[in-house]
């Protein structure tokens, strides 16, 4: 038992270490690359950190890559952050309310609405991107936070998730609160919302990262540099015409773009895991 236990434990650790290495190695490369100057990175790759770390980060945050026509990363990060937060909060608010309506109220065509929401699951953003663009353009919402976030807020997945969760809340709880004298919104606020908090946390993490990583949509709706997000910023830095891409700065930007999602995951980890594995009842 102990022999095979040691072997399997070794195997498990081997696989885990391999997995970590596969994920961590690119990040290490990015970190190392972001610590050298541009010349060092041409044609070869150093194995250890250079001396331009702080300088590089100061450059991208403050002035950006002037030569490549890239703006400062600071405002981009800000844009990305606003977009991700608005999308995450908006998605959660909208979908928890629609799930509440669908599960707890009897209104005409209730199931019809549910299926309409459900069917949109099958349509990813990319499929409806042209008509959506047309609508946003006609509403003159290009180059605005509203245009950046509004089309991404409606979410069938989140609505569905909350619906499934609400269905598991025992009916007696609803009845008990009715007898206690709570109206529908009071019940929502006092009972349903607190019970959903782990779900909300898990969803927040997922949706925040989803919003942060949006690429195609921001690329379409923003033409002004002041509205660029960091993910599209990186892309613009790489595709420079008639010049060598400044990889050291690109890598510094990448590392910066990586930080907020990581921070969100780390801060919400406890709740996130709870929301995924535990059904608290």
């Amino acid at each position: 038992m102990s022999g095979s236990g040691r072997l399997s434990s070794l195997l498990i650790h081997g696989v885990l270490i391999l997995g970590i290495a596969v994920i961590a190695f690119p990040i290490l490369i990015a970190l190392i690359a972001s610590s050298h100057d541009q010349i060092t990175l041409v044609g070869k790759f150093p194995f250890y950190f250079g001396e331009h770390f702080i300088e590089n980060y100061r450059t991208v945050l403050g002035e950006g890559m002037k030569r490549a026509g890239g703006g400062a990363v600071g405002p981009m990060l800000m844009n990305s952050f606003v977009m991700a937060i608005v999308i995450a909060v908006g998605k959660i608010v909208i979908s928890i309310l629609s799930a509440f309506a669908i599960v707890y109220f009897r209104f005409p065509f209730r199931m019809g609405f549910f299926w309409m929401i459900f069917i949109t699951l099958m349509l990813p953003v990319e499929v409806r991107i042209l008509p959506t663009y047309q609508v946003i353009a006609n509403l003159e919402l290009l180059n605005s936070y509203t245009g950046l976030t509004l089309p991404l807020i409606a979410s069938a997945t989140a609505t569905f998730l909350f619906r499934q969760f609400f269905l598991t809340v025992p009916e007696e709880l609803t009845e008990a609160s009715r007898i206690d004298g709570a109206g529908p919104m009071r019940f929502f606020w006092d009972v349903l919302l607190p019970l959903s908090r782990t779900n909300i946390a898990a969803l927040f993490v997922i949706v925040f990262i989803y919003g942060w990583n949006q690429y195609l949509w921001p690329l379409l709706v923003t033409q002004e540099e002041s509205m660029y997000t960091v993910v599209m910023g990186i892309q613009r830095m790489v595709t420079v015409a008639d010049a060598q891409a400044e990889w050291n700065l690109v890598m510094a930007t990448t590392i910066l773009a990586l930080l907020p999602p990581v921070l969100v995951v780390v801060l919400m980890q406890r709740w996130f895991v709870k929301g995924l594995v535990e059904t608290e009842k």
């Binding site: 007696e172 709880l173 009845e175 008990a176 609160s177 009715r178 709570a182 608290e280």
Partner: peptide, 28 residues
């Protein structure tokens, strides 16, 4: 139900899981 002046005890207790015992009793 709230206007009928009744109180009900359910088979599966139907306590609010996120509230303390005190809050459960005080909620109504």
């Amino acid at each position: 139900p709230k206007d009928r002046d009744i109180a009900m005890v359910f088979q599966n207790y139907a306590l609010y899981p996120h509230m303390s015992v005190f809050e459960n009793m005080a909620y109504g």
